[in-house]
Design a protein around this nucleic acid. Structure first.
Length: 316
DNA sequence: AATGGACACAACCGCTCAATA
DNA sequence: ATATTGAGCGGTTGTGTCCAT
């Protein structure tokens, strides 16, 4: 089927919008209680712009609910976490960040976060360590890289468990994509537990790994939280400060903080629960026991996209 | 002060999808 | 069932700004 151009481009203006054009567009939308048909809007409003251009200008810049200004640390963390689940689905990610546009998030990712992950030795697309191979996971050479690989492994395990536990209660409806499912999950009670425990919970930090392994069979939401908590709390404490792992603005400083966190864990009071959590993370087996993924795979209907996205799990 | 590279952001392009005739 | 259209999405590019040399 052929495609006609969205508009007759002859005589239409391109490039940056002027304040006058912005005003015309905003006035028109205000007066008409909405944009109506984008295709006809430019003509009706008296703009020499393509409808597509008007829509983009409105949704990315002029909309009254747009939140301007730099991204907060929490927002950056959320983008990274959601990207790990949703991939490059910027619009879907944007729905989780009030006032942020897909374009803005995409730019943030391409200019900051992607580079940060690369510096951390992680593939920005898969969030896997670059060092992983198709059959085995080998320990990265440097402690920092190894640490990040462990962090990622912990994240993937938590995601997998979260998925499996949640699927017991909310089977994926047919016709919905896996990532939609994860987004829904993210907004669910389970996701809330996930997010809550991604912040440091010192009590949970003291929970041993055995708690996590035993809870995989109990199927309760609290159990999911209990097992995710220690893992993510551990990851969060890996930085020099709790929950500060994404705060540094450069890869260098980030790496330094990671190193500082690792070093301190061996010297601080062993009763410190956050240190216990850090130790737990550092002791996370590099040849991770992912057997939990193989158990009753069919029964739990692990979404294939996730397995593909986290390909090394697939190959274990 | 001039210049060139890096960076950040806005905007455009092309594709896909859903709705509709 | 098929063709057409409008809207939305993600990738890419263009441009302005900053900073180091």
């Amino acid at each position: 089927m052929g495609r006609t151009p969205c508009c007759d481009k002859r005589g239409l203006k391109k490039g940056p919008w002027t304040p006058e054009e912005d005003e015309i567009l905003v006035d028109y939308i205000k007066k008409n209680g909405g944009h109506g048909s984008w295709r006809s809007l430019p003509k009706l409003a008296g703009l020499l712009r393509c409808g597509k251009s008007c829509r983009l200008r409105w949704t990315n810049y002029l909309r009254p609910d747009i939140k301007r200004g730099p991204f907060t640390v929490e927002e950056e963390k959320l983008v990274i976490q959601l990207h790990g689940i949703l991939g490059n689905r910027w619009a879907a990610i944007a729905t989780q960040l009030a006032g942020r546009t897909d374009n803005e998030i995409k730019n943030l990712w391409n200019t900051h976060l992607k580079k940060r992950l690369i510096c951390m030795g992680l593939d920005p697309q898969t969030h896997e360590p670059f060092t992983s191979c198709s059959t085995t996971i080998t320990a990265p050479a440097s402690p920092t890289t190894r640490h990040m690989a462990q962090w990622e492994s912990a994240r993937l395990e938590a995601e997998a468990r979260l998925s499996r536990e949640s699927s017991l209660f909310n089977p994926i409806p047919s016709g919905r994509t896996d990532s939609d499912y994860y987004l829904r999950m993210w907004n669910s009670e389970v996701g809330e537990s996930f997010r809550k425990f991604s912040r440091v919970d010192k009590t949970a930090c003291q929970s041993p790994v055995s708690q996590a392994s035993s809870s995989t069979k109990c199927g309760s939401l609290s159990a999911v939280s209990a097992e995710i908590g220690p893992i993510f709390a551990g990851s969060s404490t890996a930085g020099s400060n709790q929950n500060e792992d994404m705060e540094c603005k450069s890869c260098k400083s980030y790496t330094e903080e990671m190193m500082a966190g690792s070093d301190s864990s061996s010297t601080e009071d062993s009763e410190d629960s956050s240190d216990n959590a850090l130790q737990l993370l550092l002791d996370f087996p590099i040849n991770n026991d992912m057997s939990f993924l193989e158990e009753d795979m069919d029964k739990y209907a692990m979404p294939c996209a996730m397995l593909t996205e986290n390909s090394f799990i697939c190959h274990l």
